[in-house]
Design a protein around this nucleic acid. Structure first.
Lengths: 235, 235
DNA sequence: TCCTGTAGTTGAACGCGTTCAATTCAGCGC
DNA sequence: GCGCTGAATTGAACGCGTTCAACTACAGGA
């Protein structure tokens, strides 16, 4: 119901119709999200979206390159919601465990309302050719923001970490959180409680692992793990 | 080039045309896989498949419920190829490291020719509603066979393992190998060498981890990890 | 006021996956 | 041979996402 996704009025010309295209774009997006929520993605046609928005089919393609790109708008919306929910948690909690747990729980809470049709959503997201897939160039901003969030989870905590581990953790945690989401997508337990269970237990395990890595016995192992990740990130 | 995927001649009637439908089915599948490999999935039309198979387009739908179901045939075929390639390796190698490395390398070698359209493969596989997704009831047989393969990798090795770890390893290794495939799908490096690199390095790490778990210091951690996995498998 | 270029808009048309009523084929009892 | 039944096969047709040549609206300079 709220106004547009990327409302960037660079030049403030007249008050009312500062850019006609932006209004049309918002109408199309709103129509699409409404229909997606009501009927599901596959059951919503571009013709129906255009009709509800009061424009011709071709016009929708003037503002959104494809039907999938309409999903991306939704995707970014939940992403923003998660960032805001996380900010409150990170301002409150200081322990690494509480911070990670809070951010991960906020993530699941944010996407929970959309579990029904998340399948189609992430189905397209899993395609390497799709602009929606989390590893693509197209979604680099969202990925970077997300990784920075985990960087703040780590850096703002009162836990002491070795520099190399602290540097690698944001990316490792981002991959970890993708794994939890992948599990959640396939989770059909009531309320997705298995996903919450897995998340809580695995967060516990991660913190245990982190503290274990303080022991000199495990340092070589950690070194090798971090070396591998570093080499993969810089081909 | 070889003959059909599921050649199960239950009744041996005449020699040549024991079941006409089976030949047609094989022709369609062969045409589809050839075209998928040469042009990719999206660029291959059902009309092109039918034409190459020498049948009408509707006939393809008599044998395969959808274009996606043709993927499943591919999935099972590469799976079988991998099983056979692995058998030779497991008969030869006795070290756990060599066995796991060999099986994982065989996996990548098997699916490499199809890297072009593997994206679509995982795209459909990621949809929880799809019968193709690796966690579904429908693909349980393949998943079980695959897990049993990793069970043989572990049980046939000369490495000594604690019983609880040995019991959980097959499932953990199956999940690990899914992760490698996920990386491979998004790997655009020449010859997918990054995937091979990740696989080799991570196999090393896994064996290091396994030997580390012999130390009493890490036993509680292992216990907790195995406990979590067990609880997730039996909801 | 007219001209011109750009942003915005249209809808017919294309190729696709998929469906299905209609048709042919193959095997079997008589 | 005949008739029957189910398997196999056909191809036109449907609805879909997407494209694009053509059109309109409008701001700003001459």
């Amino acid at each position: 119901m709220d106004e547009m996704t990327q409302p960037l009025p660079l030049e403030e010309k007249p008050e009312k119709k500062l850019r006609k295209g932006e209004r049309t774009r918002a109408q199309i997006l709103e129509a699409a999200l409404d229909l997606f929520r009501d009927r599901g993605y596959d059951e919503t046609t571009m013709r129906a979206i255009a009709e509800r928005a009061g424009v011709a089919v071709g016009n929708a393609y003037y503002y959104f390159r494809s039907k999938e790109h309409l999903i991306q708008a939704f995707y970014e919306r939940t992403h923003q919601e998660h960032l805001e929910a996380s900010r409150a948690i990170l301002a409150r909690e200081k322990g690494l465990r509480e911070r990670l747990l809070g951010v991960m729980r906020a993530k699941l809470d944010t996407i929970m309302p959309y579990h029904n049709f998340s399948g189609v959503l992430f189905k397209t997201a899993a395609d390497p050719a799709s602009p929606l897939n989390p590893f693509s160039q197209d979604s680099e901003p969202v990925r970077r923001q997300s990784t920075e969030l985990f960087a703040e989870v780590v850096s703002g905590a009162d836990t002491r970490l070795t520099p190399d581990l602290a540097a690698a953790l944001p990316n490792l945690l981002w991959i970890y959180h993708m794994g939890i989401i992948l599990f959640w997508i396939h989770d059909s337990s009531p309320g997705c409680r298995r996903s919450y269970f897995l998340m809580e237990r695995s967060v516990k395990l991660i913190l245990r692992l982190i503290s274990l890595f303080q022991f000199p016995l495990l340092r070589p192992f950690l070194k090798e793990l971090l070396g591998m990740v570093a080499e993969l990130r810089a081909p």
